[in-house]
């Protein structure tokens, strides 16, 4: 995590230069498209495109490694559960049944295995674009981007405030736990029985709540004294004008989503099973 408390990885790729609102649009279009289909061919194409886009952003692998692992572990568990709990679910989608492995109470069939493969590809498809959005959008630009796509600025600004104060709250939390530990109150494994530790952690809530209330008072006074909420609209220091590239990508997103819907209705409506 950077000092800003966000995952932003500085760089100078097309995505770093692209406006935040367009990236949000891209993310939305990508997600809609992914959820429309249950077709491995579509996902492979999208996964390929997504990976190329991600590589072009040159985000250091070190930074995305953890998220990548989280995704892989999630997929493994998801897959295992589907196979073990509903080993013949695939048949419901295809109407055929090709047994592969007997696991006692039931038989896993080829249709289910293929379904699980498709589902995994589906989730993986979402990964590159989410990473792009999270890692290439400067935190300062989140709020203005939200405002640009129609979120009222008073709500959008809450995002800014969160980015601004999360690191402060984190360091305060560390300070409080340190002083509690000095008084013999344990938070780590081995310090105290589990139930006691849970109790100890919850007792931090009081000083944290107190200081948060105070912080809110200061921030809202400071904001009010400098005219926040004066007018119906406000401008954004961190916002940039949309450029030709932004318009192009934006139009492309809408076009792709529209054609995806057409494709869904007309051609690739169901679960694709080649066998």
């Amino acid at each position: 995590m950077s000092k800003m408390g966000t995952l932003y990885a500085p760089g100078d790729s097309v995505f770093h230069r692209m406006d935040g609102s367009i990236k949000m649009l891209l993310f939305a279009a990508w997600t809609i498209t992914t959820f429309l289909f249950l077709d491995l061919r579509v996902f492979i194409v999208m996964l390929l495109i997504g990976t190329i886009l991600l590589l072009s952003a040159k985000i250091p692998f070190r930074q995305i490694r953890i998220l990548l692992w989280v995704m892989i572990v999630f997929n493994v568990f998801n897959t295992a559960f589907i196979i073990l709990i509903t080993p013949t679910y695939g048949s419901e989608l295809t109407g055929t049944n090709t047994p592969v492995l007997n696991i006692g109470y039931n038989t896993i069939n080829l249709e289910t295995l293929f379904y699980v493969l498709t589902l995994t590809a589906k989730y993986l498809t979402l990964l590159p674009v989410s990473l792009l959005f999270i890692f290439t959008t400067h935190p300062s630009k989140f709020a203005s981007s939200l405002n640009r796509i129609g979120v009222p600025y008073k709500i959008a600004y809450a995002v800014n405030i969160a980015f601004r104060y999360i690191p402060d709250i984190q360091s305060e939390f560390r300070g409080i736990t340190n002083s509690m530990q000095m008084r013999g109150i344990g938070f780590r494994k081995g310090d105290a029985p589990f139930t006691q530790r849970v109790k100890n952690v919850t007792s931090i809530a009081i000083p944290m709540l107190y200081s948060s209330l105070q912080r809110i008072e200061v921030v809202s006074n400071a904001m009010e004294l400098r005219g926040f909420g004066k007018h119906k609209r406000r401008t954004w220091y961190a916002m940039e004008d949309l450029r030709a590239m932004d318009y192009t990508v934006g139009a492309l997103c809408i076009l792709v989503t529209a054609s995806a819907i057409w494709l869904k209705i007309g051609v690739l409506s169901g679960f694709w099973y080649p066998f």
Binding site: S140, V218, R233, R234
Partner: peptide, 30 residues
């Protein structure tokens, strides 16, 4: 007004943004 809590009243994520805060609220062009 300059408040006592130097940290708490720093609203922007960067120096430039913080100074710009009241301009933003006035809708001054970028």
């Amino acid at each position: 007004t300059i408040l006592q809590d130097l940290d708490g009243q720093f609203i922007g994520l960067s120096v430039g943004e913080d100074v710009a805060f009241s301009f933003e609220n006035d809708g001054i062009p970028r």
